[in-house]
Simulated scan of single mutants.
Amino acid sequence: MRVAPGKSAKVNVTLRIDPRKFSKTMDPTMERTQSGLARAWVSDVTGRVELSSSKAPTAGTGPGRAEAHCPR
């Protein structure tokens, strides 16, 4: 795909994350019990996905980045 300077384009990106490869940890600001009962929670992983091309120069702007969020 070629995008002219100053223009934009939409690109579909598929990100596959295997949640089994991440540990289930509780946010340290949360209590392990609530009203005297064990608390249930959903852990998550966040980060950035870097989009780059070996064929296209980045012209000093660097690769594109997108936020990623994976509930576990």
Rank of each mutant, 00 (worst) to 15 (best):
K55C: 01
D44P: 01
L51S: 06
R16F: 10
A9N: 06
P71A: 00
S43F: 04
S53D: 10
A4Q: 11
P71T: 08
F22M: 05
P71E: 09
T14I: 12
G47R: 02
T61G: 09
I17S: 03
E31A: 15
K7S: 08
D44A: 14
T33Q: 07
P63D: 09
A68Y: 10
G6M: 06
K24G: 04
S8Q: 11
S8M: 06
C70H: 01
D27I: 01
S43L: 03
K7W: 13
P57V: 01
M26D: 04
S43R: 03
T46N: 12
G47I: 00
R48C: 04
R20Q: 11
S52I: 02
K55D: 14
S43Y: 06
D27A: 07
R39Y: 01
S53G: 02
T14D: 13
R48N: 12
R65V: 14
S54D: 11
M1Q: 06
A56Y: 15
R72N: 11
R16V: 13
G6E: 01
S43M: 06
V49G: 08
K24A: 08
M30V: 03
A59F: 15
K55I: 13
S35W: 14
L37T: 11
T25H: 08
L15H: 05
V3Y: 00
P28T: 08
E50F: 07
D44Y: 15
W41P: 00
L15C: 06
P5N: 05
M1N: 06
S35D: 14
M1E: 13
G36E: 00
R48P: 01
R32A: 12
A4E: 15
A9V: 04
S43V: 02
S43W: 05
A66Q: 02
N12V: 07
S54V: 12
R39T: 02
R72H: 08
S52N: 15
Q34A: 08
C70R: 00
C70A: 14
G62E: 03
V13C: 03
S35G: 08
A38S: 12
A68N: 02
R16G: 09
N12R: 08
M1L: 12
A66E: 05
C70W: 02
D44V: 02
G47E: 00
A59W: 11
R2S: 14
P63Y: 01
T33P: 01
R32M: 06
A38D: 14
P71D: 04
R16E: 07
A9H: 05
A68M: 15
E50H: 05
R72M: 12
T14F: 10
M26W: 04
S43Q: 07
G36Q: 05
E31C: 04
G60V: 03
D18C: 03
A4G: 06
K55L: 10
H69M: 15
T29K: 07
V49C: 05
K24F: 05
M30H: 03
R20T: 13
P63N: 14
T46Y: 10
T61L: 13
G47N: 01
S8G: 10
K21F: 01
R32F: 05
I17T: 13
R72G: 04
V49D: 06
V49W: 03
Q34T: 09
R48I: 09
Q34K: 08
A38V: 11
M30Q: 13
A4K: 13
L15F: 10
P5V: 02
T25I: 14
V45M: 13
T14S: 11
K10F: 11
G64A: 15
S8E: 04
K55W: 07
S54Q: 12
A38T: 15
